[in-house]
């Protein structure tokens, strides 16, 4: 398959993730949609790495995976902290971070 088709799939997945971030009010699902967007970027990086025949894109895809893991860890920690305080888990009602 031509590289362009991989990029099209990546663009579609990215847009689905962006719509999810805009539409869903649950922070857990918003984190999942962020994962979708990061994975779309990963797919584009790996496709370009195949296009040029160099492995730099794959190295950065792995680094993006590290970043995603960090983001998930901190985000889920925040959600657990919010849940402990018996607040509503809804981004429309959570508009301050003050402890």
């Amino acid at each position: 398959m031509a590289i362009g088709w991989y990029l099209v799939v990546s663009a579609i997945i990215f847009c689905i993730g962006a719509v999810g971030v805009l539409v869903r009010p649950n922070p857990l699902v918003i984190l999942l949609c962020l994962e979708l967007m990061l994975n779309a970027a990963n797919l584009a990086l790996v496709a370009f790495s195949r296009m040029w025949g160099g492995s730099d894109g794959q190295v950065f895809a792995l680094i993006v995976m590290v970043i995603a893991a960090c983001e998930v860890t901190v985000g889920l920690g925040l959600i657990v902290a919010i849940y402990r305080r018996r607040l509503a888990i809804d981004v429309d009602e959570l508009n301050e971070l003050r402890g």
Partner: peptide, 16 residues
């Protein structure tokens, strides 16, 4: 992406 004239994108990539 599909209407581009870039040759690299419409090719199958570098030789393996």
């Amino acid at each position: 992406l599909l209407g581009t004239a870039l040759k690299g994108i419409s090719g199958k990539g570098a030789p393996y």
